[in-house]
């Protein structure tokens, strides 16, 4: 418990400051202060109903999906099929962008093209399924659908553009982890 508070000391300071601020606002009848409590209550109730369910869905997804099977397909296929597999792999991931760099290094070592590596990264950023659950439940299916519909072709085109710009400039990937060992 103490280590938990220590880890999030800034957040707990913010919460304490907020409690003092709203108590003071109630006493002094400071309208914006009272309004901010009303806002907070409304936001908090909504988040607490949706977020726990989202995390249960994401964790279930994580224990049941086997990414290794898809990873096997990467590298050998070129053209549309190669693009299909990297996008599928990206959609089944979770986590922040810097977690995708080591995976893209693996793809490169397995022989994936420059184009497919950058398509993977773009799809990883914008089309991860666990994040899509989150997006749909907060911003609605219309937003999510349109955003994905427009992003997908742009990500693929970007892959082609980046490949064209890097191809003859002897692009190389390296991994900081293996570089350290040398």
């Amino acid at each position: 418990m103490i280590s938990f508070i220590k880890k999030f000391k800034w957040d707990f300071s913010a919460i304490t400051a907020f409690i003092i601020f709203i108590t003071y606002s109630q006493i002094m009848n400071f309208q914006p202060g009272i309004q901010s409590l009303t806002n907070f209550r409304e936001f908090f109730v909504e988040m607490m109903t949706i977020i726990p369910m989202m995390f249960i869905l994401i964790s279930l997804f994580d224990v049941w999906v086997h990414r290794e099977k898809i990873q096997k397909h990467i590298g050998q296929n070129s053209g549309m099929r190669g693009i299909f597999w990297v996008i599928l792999l990206a959609m089944l991931q979770a986590g922040p962008l810097y977690g995708a760099f080591p995976v893209s290094y693996l793809l490169w070592k397995k022989g994936a093209s420059i184009r497919n590596i950058f398509i993977y990264l773009g799809a990883f950023c914008t089309m991860k399924l666990p994040m899509m659950f989150f997006e749909i439940s907060f911003l609605g299916i219309k937003f999510s659908f349109l955003r994905t519909l427009f992003t997908l072709p742009i990500v693929i085109i970007s892959g082609y553009i980046i490949e064209a710009l890097l191809k003859n400039r002897n692009f190389k990937m390296s991994s900081p982890e293996t570089a350290k060992e040398k």
């Binding site: 999030f8 800034w10 957040d11 707990f12 913010a14 919460i15 907020f18 601020f21 914006p32 202060g33 309004q35 901010s36 409590l37 806002n39 907070f40 936001f43 908090f44 988040m47 977020i51």
Partner: peptide, 16 residues
């Protein structure tokens, strides 16, 4: 905890 602080910042900012 970080979500709480973000909600606090947003609530106060929007009220002000």
């Amino acid at each position: 905890p970080p979500l709480m602080s973000i909600l606090i910042i947003i609530s106060v900012t929007l009220a002000l």
